[in-house]
């Protein structure tokens, strides 16, 4: 019974999130067509979601790049394959580590903040107030957050790739005793534009997932301060689980597309 109840709840939530996503796309198209797209709201959200996350994702990127080089570097050195370190790290960063880790950091920082803000608005009747002022809450609240999160996650992933590789290069040169030239050549030899874009495509999807889950959890908040706390936690947990699950399907899709194109 418990499992059936949970399964029903899960399906309800997925359905609700899908409807919210479709409404967001509808309002985006409608606003663009009527020339009423809220550019100021979008820029404000991009600053909040993106700029304020820069330091956190930079630290994450440098750390991951450096750790990958240490882990891979010593193993490869034992096999006399130091020349591949740069390429392997670049591929790991571009394809998986950068989009996944950036998304997890942003889900923790931004997804929770969206859920808390919208949840508070919900329990204090501010979302009802928007409706009474003939303003659709999805249009006013979700559309700018959705696009800001989607766009900024791609940009932050680019940043994580860059700082990750810089961190990796520094460790490769000063700890693994590789030359910068050998590290760079390996990166350029192995990494293709397709790998970079594959990772950025993933980041875009993850950004959309974080925004929709954060907004959905905010909109469905009930029960006062405790409810806001629950929505905030749920938004992070569900977003991370969803990102990890969707990542598998995206990886399969991108790799199949790779086989078709190349």
């Amino acid at each position: 019974m418990y499992l059936i109840k949970k399964a029903k709840q899960f399906l309800n939530e997925v359905g609700g999130m899908t409807i919210l996503f479709l409404q967001t796309i509808y309002w985006t198209i409608r606003n663009i067509r009527s020339g009423k797209f809220d550019v100021k709201g979008l820029i404000d959200q991009m600053a909040h979601i993106g700029v304020d996350s820069v330091l956190m994702v930079c630290i994450t990127g440098v750390s991951v790049g450096a750790v990958l080089v240490v882990q891979i570097g010593y193993q490869f050195a034992q096999m006399g394959a130091q020349g591949y370190v740069g390429g392997v790290v670049a591929l790991a960063m571009a394809r998986e580590m950068a989009p996944i880790l950036t998304s997890i950091v942003v889900a923790g920082r931004v997804g929770s903040s969206i859920a808390a803000e919208l949840g508070t608005m919900k329990i204090t009747e501010q979302i009802d107030a928007l409706d009474t002022l003939a303003t659709n809450p999805v249009d006013y609240l979700v559309v700018p957050r959705f696009w800001a999160c989607t766009i900024m996650l791609v940009m932050l992933t680019v940043l994580v790739n860059v700082v990750g590789m810089i961190g990796g290069a520094v460790v490769a040169v000063y700890q693994i005793d590789l030359t910068l030239e050998s590290f760079t050549n390996s990166v350029l030899e192995w990494l293709r534009v397709y790998d970079l874009f594959g990772g950025l495509f993933k980041a875009m999807v993850f950004g959309a997932i974080i925004a929709i889950i954060g907004c959905f959890k905010g909109f469905t908040t009930s029960g006062g301060a405790e409810g806001v706390g629950k929505s905030t936690t749920d938004s992070v947990v569900v977003a991370i689980m969803m990102i990890l699950a969707v990542n598998y399907f995206l990886t399969v899709f991108i790799s199949n597309l790779n086989s078709i194109i190349f």
């Binding site: 608005m121 204090t124 009747e125 501010q126 009802d128 107030a129 409706d131 009474t132 002022l133 003939a134």
Partner: peptide
Amino acid sequence: RMRMGMLFQSAALF
């Protein structure tokens, strides 16, 4: 709704 106004119990200011 543009012909209506509502004062909420909690005021519901943004």
